[in-house]
Computed example of a mutant assay.
Amino acid sequence: MVAATDRPVRKRTEVVVATRRKSGRWQGQATLVALRVAVIAIALLLWQVLSGPVLPEYAVSKPTEVAGALVEMLGSASGWADIRATVVEVVAGFSMGVVLGALLGLLLGSFPLAGRVLEPLVAAFNGIPKIALAPLFLLFFGIGAWSKITIAMIGPAFVMFYNIYLGLRLRERELVEVVQVMGGRRHHLLAYVTIPTLAAPFFAALKTGGPLAILGVIGAEFIASTEGLGHGLFTSAMNLDAATEFAGLIVLVTMTLILNGLLTWLDKLALKRLGLTARDRPAAEHA
C-alpha cells in the first residue's frame, strides 16, 4: 500500500526533474546565443572606432559603410544576378561531384582488384591543387558557367569517393557473413549492412564537400568570369572598394551557413529514419 502511494509522488518528481533539466538546457542555449551576439557587437564596435585612426579605412572600411554596400548589392539587379550565378554553379557542381564520387567509391569498393589498381591513380590526381586545374578547364569550357561547375565538382567528388570507398572496405566482414549464413541475398546485405555502414560517411562527405564546392566556384570566378560573387569580389578589390568587398564576403558566409544548415538537417533526418544514432564522423579531409 505504501509503495502504491509513493508511485504518483515519484512520477511527479520525475516530471519536475525533467522540466528543470529542459529549462536548464534552454537557459544554457540562451546564454550561449547572448554571448555570441555580445562578441559580434564588440567586434563591430571596435571595427567602427579603430577604422581610420588605427586601421586604414581604404582597406577595412567601416561596418556602417559595409551595411550600406550590402543593402545596395541586395537592392540591385546586378547584385542578385551575381548571387544567382554563383548559387547555380555551386549547386550544380556539388550535386555532380557527390554523384560522381559516390559511384566511383561504390565501384572501386565493391571490386577489390579494381580498387587496388585505380586507387593510387585517384590519389595522385587528388594531389593536384584544384585551383591549378582552373586554367585547363577554362580552355575546355570557356569562361562560362561550365568551367566553374567542373571546378566545383572536383572537391566534393574526391571527398565522397574516399568516404564511400573506405566505408566499404571497413564494412564488418563478420556481419556480412552472418547475413549470408542466414540466407540473406544482395538486397538484404544492402539494407542491413551496407546502407547503415555508409550513412555516416556519406553525410560527413556531404558536409565537407559543400564548402569545397563554394571555394572552387569562387576561385574559378576570380580567375576568369563575367558574373558571380567571385567576379564581384575581384572587381571590388581592384577598385579598392573595401565596403563592397566585405558585403560580398557576408553574402558568401551566409550562403555557406545556409548550405551547412540544410546538410545538417538532412543528416539528422536520414540517420533518424535509418534508426542510427549520431556518432563520430570519419575524417573526410582528403581534398
Rank of each mutant, 00 (worst) to 15 (best):
W80R: 15
A278T: 01
A284H: 02
Y162L: 00
T13Y: 08
R281F: 09
A43H: 06
L170A: 13
G109M: 05
P56R: 14
K272R: 15
K11R: 15
L175S: 13
L44N: 15
F111D: 08
V217S: 02
Y165D: 09
L198R: 09
V193L: 09
A102T: 03
I128C: 11
R21L: 09
L50W: 08
A77T: 05
K11S: 14
L276S: 09
E221I: 05
L133S: 09
E177T: 02
M182G: 15
L100V: 11
L113V: 11
S225H: 14
V2W: 05
M238L: 12
M182W: 15
G228I: 00
S78A: 12
A134P: 09
I154V: 02
G105Q: 04
R173F: 13
Q180K: 15
V39E: 03
G210F: 13
N239Y: 13
S225N: 14
A67P: 10
L121E: 12
A38H: 08
F140I: 06
G183K: 14
F140S: 07
K148T: 01
L70I: 10
L118A: 11
G230Y: 07
G109R: 05
V98S: 06
L139H: 12
V87Q: 05
F94G: 05
K11V: 07
V253N: 06
F137D: 06
R12T: 01
R116L: 00
G219L: 00
T208N: 08
T150V: 02
T13V: 05
A85C: 00
W265M: 05
I250Y: 13
M238Y: 06
S110F: 04
M1S: 10
V60F: 12
S95E: 01
V176D: 13
Q180D: 15
G68C: 11
A81P: 04
E65G: 07
L107S: 15
V178I: 07
F222W: 04
F94I: 01
A270V: 03
P135C: 13
R185G: 14
S76F: 07
W146H: 09
F202A: 11
L32Q: 12
K148Q: 05
V178K: 15
G210E: 14
T5P: 00
R12I: 00
R36F: 12
R173P: 07
A243M: 00
G210K: 08
L55A: 15
L206H: 09
L46W: 09
E227K: 15
D82I: 02
V90H: 02
A157V: 00
I83D: 04
L106P: 05
V9K: 10
